[in-house]
């Protein structure tokens, strides 16, 4: 036995050093794996909301907002969620590299794979409606997020450009309702001749909507087209009152008047 190994063995005995138990290593690996999986899930959720916001950005109306589609793209990119997605992608890479085999993969390959997984997961969450729910929860409960989203909301409050958005506060007889826009102004909305109700909407109190139309006079707006503010999972009043069958979920002309 060499002098060095004798010294080490003596130290092991004197200090009663024991190998760490197996469960400690299993726990550590499980912890890292859990953090890795959570990063993927959170990255996917962030990506899902970004996908939701991008797909509901009303690309067909870009000319109402900006001069070019590029300008519109810069305007509506969901930076908040992209920052989250990038952050969680970084965490995913970090935690994966700390798994047993993680070191074998290059950072660039991992980043690309992580982004691909986040986007795929995000698309799945979006299809399941989770992205929309999460966005709504953030809107309702996180004041900072609401402030960040106000820019987007206020874009839609441009009656002089033919755009209005807000919440229905009173449904009135005679093809009209009252709306409080996202800047807090009250409007009387009058249905246009050939009004188009998107995605099976009907006028319902507290429903948040976007309206395309034109100002008739101060405080009165003629609606040509009405779209939901949120997507399909947070819409109320989607039934067709007075109609025997279900509404066309995509498009319905001459929508119902108030109850």
């Amino acid at each position: 036995m060499t002098r060095l190994s004798q010294t080490v063995l003596k130290k092991i005995e004197e200090e009663r050093i024991r190998p760490y138990p197996k469960w400690r290593f299993i726990l550590r690996r499980s912890f890292i794996t859990t953090l890795f999986v959570m990063s993927i899930l959170l990255g996917s959720l962030a990506s899902g909301v970004a996908i939701f916001q991008l797909t509901h950005a009303e690309w067909d109306l870009y000319q109402h907002f900006t001069h070019s589609i590029l300008e519109f793209t810069v305007l509506i990119v969901p930076y908040f969620w992209l920052v989250f997605m990038i952050g969680f992608t970084a965490f995913t890479i970090y935690f994966f590299r700390h798994t047993e085999r993680g070191y074998r993969y290059s950072a660039i390959g991992l980043a690309l794979a992580s982004i691909a997984v986040s986007v795929a997961g995000g698309f799945l969450f979006y299809k399941m409606g989770l992205s929309e729910r999460l966005e709504a929860v953030f809107q309702d409960r996180i004041p900072i997020y609401r402030t960040l989203q106000e820019r987007r909301m206020k874009l839609w409050v441009s009656p002089e450009r033919g755009l209005l958005a807000g919440k229905i506060i009173e449904v009135m007889p005679g093809k009209k309702f009252k709306l409080r826009d996202f800047r807090g102004n009250s409007w009387l909305i009058v249905f246009g001749e050939d009004i188009l109700w998107r995605r099976g909407l009907s006028p319902t109190k507290n429903l948040q909507i976007k309206i395309i139309g034109q100002i008739q006079k101060k405080g009165v707006f003629i609606a040509k087209e009405i779209r939901p503010w949120h997507g399909r999972h947070f819409r109320r009043g989607a039934s067709c009152p007075g109609s025997p069958g279900p509404c066309n979920p995509r498009r319905r002309r001459n929508g119902p008047i108030g109850p």
């Binding site: 060095l4 092991i12 190998p19 760490y20 197996k22 400690r24 290593f25």
Partner: peptide, 10 residues
């Protein structure tokens, strides 16, 4: 060596 011994189970 002490570190190796402590971590043998890992």
């Amino acid at each position: 060596f002490i570190k190796v011994y402590r971590n043998l189970n890992g």
